Computed example of a mutant assay.
Amino acid sequence: MKSASPPNGHMPQHPVPEREFTMRFTSTPRGARLARRLVSHRLDDWGHPYTSPINEALTLITAELTANAVRHGHVPGRDFHVQLTLVEDTFRIEVTDTRTEKQPPITPPAPDSLSESGRGLLLVAALADDWGVSPRRTAPGKTVWAELPVRPKGHPLTHRVAPEPTELDLLLATASPLGDDLGSRPEDATHEGRRP
């Protein structure tokens, strides 16, 4: 049996995140909304304002991944976990749930035009530079992740190649996970936590 260490005898080093946000949330629609809002708020704190393309893209990706964790990864009494990191000018969002047997497809299927759901992973694939699924490291479950560079090589983020406008319009028009208003942000709330 071969050793897991590389030929030079040194184990590979994982880069230390420059920024990191980690939190557990209840596996409910409210938990998914809170995760999305806190990721957006954290990005704003890190210098990526709410209306910036990187904040909007990562907030939407987070909304889709957390909605899927609640809908398809829910195990009664178990929470889901969100981790947002910035390593070497690349943001990585990870959403971990405790359900192993329900894996998202590697290639999102084309949705039925009459269906009200099934577009979330298409949206993630369109917005992220890379995404995937990996087994949970320490317990049963899975982690769905997506990566997005702060600035893509060669051109600013606002000039990314996107799907045909009609496809993206359809995706965005139906991308309201769990019936939440994607346009709401923490600063929209009053000091009592209620919206006007």
Rank of each mutant, 00 (worst) to 15 (best):
G132N: 08
R71F: 00
R119I: 14
N55E: 12
D45T: 15
T62D: 10
L123Y: 08
L34F: 09
E187R: 08
V70G: 03
I93P: 03
D129I: 07
R136G: 00
R160P: 00
Q83A: 13
A128G: 11
V133F: 04
D44P: 00
R195N: 13
R119P: 12
T85G: 02
F91M: 07
V16K: 01
L170E: 12
L121D: 07
I106V: 13
A67D: 08
D112R: 06
A162H: 08
M11G: 00
L86D: 02
A67G: 12
L168P: 05
W46L: 02
P15N: 14
D180G: 02
D89P: 04
K153L: 03
V161T: 09
P12T: 00
R137A: 15
Q83V: 08
D97T: 12
R92I: 08
T96L: 11
E20H: 01
G179R: 01
T96S: 14
S5P: 02
R24K: 09
V70K: 13
E64C: 00
G193N: 05
W46E: 06
V150F: 03
S27W: 12
P156T: 01
S113M: 09
M11D: 02
K2G: 05
N8Y: 10
E56F: 11
D188Y: 06
S176G: 14
L38F: 14
S134M: 11
T51E: 02
L127F: 09
P196V: 14
T100H: 13
T62M: 12
A175H: 04
K102N: 07
T166G: 10
D79R: 09
G73W: 03
H14W: 07
P29W: 11
S3H: 11
V70A: 03
I61R: 02
H81R: 14
R160W: 03
S117P: 06
D188F: 04
M11E: 11
N68R: 01
G47L: 12
L122A: 09
L58A: 01
D44R: 07
E18P: 02
I61E: 01
P186Y: 08
P186D: 10
A126Q: 06
P105E: 14
H72M: 00
F80P: 09
R30D: 07
T26I: 11
A57M: 11
R194C: 02
P156N: 03
R24E: 10
T28R: 11
R33W: 07
M23R: 15
E20L: 06
P105D: 14
T28H: 05
R136M: 01
V95Y: 04
F80K: 08
V39T: 03
E94Q: 12
D89S: 11
P196K: 15
F21K: 02
P15I: 08
P7H: 07
R36V: 06
I54N: 01
I54L: 01
P109C: 13
L38R: 15
V124S: 01
R24H: 06
P29L: 15
H159F: 04
L60I: 05
M1R: 06
T174Y: 15
R92F: 05
P7D: 15
R37G: 14
T62A: 12
V95D: 02
K142W: 00
T166R: 15
A110S: 04
A32P: 08
G47S: 10
L84N: 00
G118T: 05
E192A: 07
R137D: 10
R37W: 13
L65R: 03
